[in-house]
Amino acid sequence: MDTSSFGEFIRSYFLWRDPMIVGAVSGAICGFLGVYVVLRRIVFVGAMLSQVSSFGVALAFYLQGFSALSLFQSLIDPFALSLVMTGAAALFFALNRVFFRISQEGVIGFGYLLASGIVVIIADRITHEAHDIADILFGSAVVVDPKEVYIVPAVAIVAILIHWIFFKDFIFVSFDPETARLFKYPVRILNTVLLLTVGVVIAVTTRALGALPVFALAVLPPLTALFLTERLTLVFIFSIMIGILSAVFGYFFSFVLSLPTGASITTCASLFFLLGTGWQGIRRLV
């Protein structure tokens, strides 16, 4: 990469402006919600939900191919279907203990494998949309749908607002559910709302960025932030910042080095994680 490619990057801002905005907002909100995912030791719930979201999109593409369903075209919109499927998966995960009592890992594994298997089957059936499905899974799209420039920030604002109101309560039920139950806190409702916000955000950001980078942004920035500080509020702030930086640098390197965008974002988030481990190592030595 030389100065001319950087200049070209700056001159082409109209090409990357929208994806960069969507990527940065996705990095911020995934970084924020990912702190809960990591602290509750359910990191693969991010993978499961992003995969279920991909399944919703793929299913919508598949159903759109049936002329008999043409009357319901608006209902089988990829975004709407992925949102419904991801919300349902988050709800199932939150309420599993009440109805089925399957282990958390069991539900995550089941959801991930079922969604992955069906996505592959659908991709095999609709070869003409296979490229779109690959984009959704791995986040190879350099451009984003103009609607997403509004949808992703709007969903992020709603999620932040909910978390602003219930911040202390979400932390309480995540850290000490037994005492929360003793204090008559609505533990089940709070857990469900928390997981639904995670599910909806993952559905929306997966549609924009792809499953792989969304999973990376929900896991690696919070893990990195935990290396950097011992204070909970700072973990959230650092995680948001690392999420934004991973997305922005990921887009930048994808643009100037012609790399697949999703993989570039994932790699940047991984590099931040490695820097975080290095920082922790230095602190321990000192």
């Binding site: 309480f172 204090f183 909970l232």
Partner: peptide, 26 residues
């Protein structure tokens, strides 16, 4: 041993949680 040490909770934040019985949700 009931508490997961992955949480970076300070002593004051931890003690504050004991106060939540008198602080409503939200």
């Amino acid at each position: 041993e009931n508490f997961d040490h992955i949480f970076p909770i300070s002593v004051a934040e931890f003690v504050a949680m004991g106060r939540y019985i008198r602080i409503p949700v939200g």
